[in-house]
Design a protein around this nucleic acid. Structure first.
Lengths: 361, 361
DNA sequence: TTGCTCCTCACGTCACGTGAGGTGGC
DNA sequence: TTGCTCCTCACGTCACGTGAGGTGGC
């Protein structure tokens, strides 16, 4: 196989292959003495592709022979460590970027509200469980923050679930203000916020600044783009057909023990039955109060569990509205956290966010 | 200001400054014609520091003049884009790493246990609130995971608080195994874990791999170094002098409304009174059951709130042991989450972790 | 006067890419 | 015979770091 052919098959370039030969990384199987032509064996392709992949993840040439020579377990270890180092560098860069943004220019931002650090951290963490993780829609990956009439409202949704909560700040917002905070930035900041007594939230042109009394400042980017009108969505919901009140930690414990991702909730007059499907043996029963006709709904545990786990009060209120309609999960006594969850259809796996099927209207 | 002085103040090196001059990035205010000595003005320091920060986040030299010349809003946008690009590169590297690991060959680690994604994410998040944030002691910044006799125990402590919880996995650990997971790595992984039905925890020599059924794999580094012997610490605690049982969400709500970071808990026969100090007006009272003599304790809200916020059941059990001894906070009914918190002495501010005063023995 | 800082200029590093000038293979 | 691929060797890129050899300032 000539150098051009080998390059094409492995995704490398001829000049890179020549360089790798000089570096002793991969040598042609045969070199023609007279012409100097390099010939590679088909069996070297795997190695060529491996080198390209390692270089694609910015691994230094010097580290590559180790990875190629070691057994799979050891090689996996080296790669994992390398990727973790890249993550460190990114985190460091994010911190530096945050520090850069708070240079003495433009003065300090517009004060929005002041909240206790542990309270803000707990609430943001709670709500962020309903945000869309990873790359995808930047708006749905973020936390919506709205300051109005003396209160701070935090909201997140990924199209399948929606969580919203209202906080009463220590220093109430004087202005009306709203923004969508970058979820990744915020999650990284939260551990440092949690141990600050009081955090001042300030709007600073492109992002949000979280300032503490001791002069420490964190910067969080905002996400551009219109946030879904969840208030309209909430107010347009039809009334609950069936309402269930159940002890939160009993339900949580039953969910812990449930096998499989699909779960069926069956609400009867006397209680709640959890099971994989009606015909499968050993469904689990919980005592609960219910109003309205008996009803059943399927959920994906990955959608339903975070909603239950994030709730606060001792009792949970579950409103079912029938097939295709979102269910509401709420603390029974104090309604400052509301979660919506789309039911799943059995046999239908959770579609990726934004693909349209089964998402919130 | 000479080049050496300016370099020191800005965090750059003399050779970098000379290079930047050639590149036209930052020119000395004065250059001595005879000697060629470069002299920088004090007013150039901000620019020097800005250049260092931008270079620290790997921004190319060619892109820097734009950032320096634009107004704050536009500069912020450019930086955000740059950091986002770095994030893209990291994600791409992760994908390539995952593809690389999929190659023929074994590569899988030792199976430890399998846990539902949302359950693991919720538990880890809960416990990590007691870890030491930011750089500092790597062990105390991490999450201790112990697999033994069919259960998985998660623990974190920063020397002032300790949280520990036991999970019952879907597939029980066959082996006895323990490790301290890197807190930053884990926090970054959790949002992607939360929406996976089942997560297989695997020990891979120096780290831990979290593998899902759909072939997705996350890697989390472990932290070397001995973890504090918290079991010994827990078993060596003297019995509680005063035990209080109180509704969790009523307590949480009272803490929400408390002003200041220092809080005084006064346990009487009939209930619990919260206040900044006994002589200050308007303490808040909650109904609660108590056993043992009346007692009082001061806490920092930043220490106490996360413990209450992370608890699960409807009722909370608070064990007080007297001055200088940690208090225990636990769900009253199901004891799978236990939190220890060191009381604060009034007037004494929270010392940084590891400084010795007021930390857990 | 003695160190010390500073100067310029050349070359090294990393992982290649890009021609220039020339030859081999179908 | 005509393109085409391949060869070597030198130099460019990026953002500096590292001496060598020499001079200026307190």
């Amino acid at each position: 196989m000539s150098i051009g052919k080998f390059a094409q098959c492995s995704g490398l370039t001829p000049s890179a292959l020549r360089f790798y030969q000089d570096a002793g990384l991969i040598r042609p199987a045969v070199v023609d003495d007279a012409s100097g032509y390099r010939y590679y064996a088909a069996g070297q392709l795997a190695q060529g592709i491996a080198i390209r992949q390692l270089r694609d993840m910015a691994m230094p040439l010097g580290a590559i022979p180790q990875v190629l020579d070691d057994d799979a377990a050891e090689a996996g270890r080296l790669i994992d460590e390398h990727v973790a180092r890249l993550g460190d560098q990114l985190r460091q860069a994010r911190r530096t970027a945050a520090a850069f943004q708070e240079r003495p220019g433009e003065g300090s931002g517009l004060p929005v509200a002041s909240v206790k650090g542990p309270v803000l951290a707990a609430a943001a963490e709670q709500i962020l469980t309903a945000a869309a993780p990873g790359p995808g829609s930047p708006v749905l990956g973020g936390l919506r923050v709205e300051a109005a009439s003396g209160a701070l409202t935090l909201t997140a949704t990924d199209g399948y679930r929606l969580a919203t909560r209202t906080l009463v700040p220590d220093q109430a917002p004087g202005t009306t203000w709203a923004a969508t905070l970058n979820g990744d930035d915020l999650r990284e900041i939260l551990p440092r916020i949690r141990h600050r007594a009081l955090v001042h939230v300030e709007a600073s042109r492109p992002g949000v600044r979280l300032r503490t009394d001791c002069g420490h400042t964190e910067y969080c980017r905002t996400v551009a783009g219109q946030y879904p009108d969840y208030r309209l969505l909430l107010s347009a919901l039809p009334p609950a057909a069936t309402r269930l009140t159940v002890a939160r930690d009993a339900l949580l414990r039953a969910l812990d023990r449930h096998a499989g991702n699909l779960i069926r909730l069956h609400v009867t007059r006397g209680g709640l039955t959890l099971g994989p499907a009606p015909e499968v043996a050993a469904p689990r029963s919980l005592r609960a109060r219910s109003a309205g006709p008996p009803a059943a709904a399927w959920f994906h545990l990955t959608t339903f569990y975070p909603a239950v786990s994030a709730a606060i009060g001792p009792d949970l209120m579950l409103d079912l509205r029938g097939p295709g309609q979102p269910a509401t999960i709420r603390s029974a006594d104090t309604g400052d956290l509301t979660t919506l969850a789309m039911p799943a259809r059995p046999g239908v796996s959770l579609a990726p966010a934004g693909s349209g099927t089964g998402s919130l209207p």
